[in-house]
């Protein structure tokens, strides 16, 4: 199963988990399964149309899916998805 890294700012909505194994063969399927398991994440990751919010970037093995096939980007069992939301904190 692909691994999804949950950023600190979204961990509360993901049951405090830092990393989750989520079933899916595309980024879209993984995000769908992730938001089904943790519905509080849905509004933060997806727009009402079901596309990715522009303030969250999704990387598969270090590459931005916006420059791959967006939600259609295929993912394999050994792949890691990183959710990267904007953070403004200046310390």
């Amino acid at each position: 199963m692909p691994t999804v890294r949950i950023p600190p700012v979204l961990r509360t909505q993901a049951g405090g988990q830092k990393q989750l194994q989520i079933l899916g063969t595309t980024v879209g399927e993984v995000i769908q399964a992730l938001t089904s398991a943790h519905p509080a994440l849905r509004d933060q990751l997806l727009t009402t149309d079901g596309t990715l919010n522009r303030f969250v970037n999704v990387f598969v093995n270090g590459s931005d899916v916006r420059y791959l096939q967006e939600l259609e980007t295929p993912v394999g069992d050994s792949d890691t998805l990183i959710l990267l939301p904007a953070m403004a904190g200046g310390g």
């Binding site: 700012v9 933060q44 522009r54 303030f55 939301p85 904007a86 904190g89 200046g90």
Partner: peptide
């Protein structure tokens, strides 16, 4: 290019709210 739009404030608390 990286973040075309800003998140809603509740999604991106600063250090004074979230701590660091």
């Amino acid at each position: 290019c990286l973040y075309p739009t800003a998140p809603p404030p509740e999604l991106a608390p600063g250090c004074s709210v979230a701590g660091v």
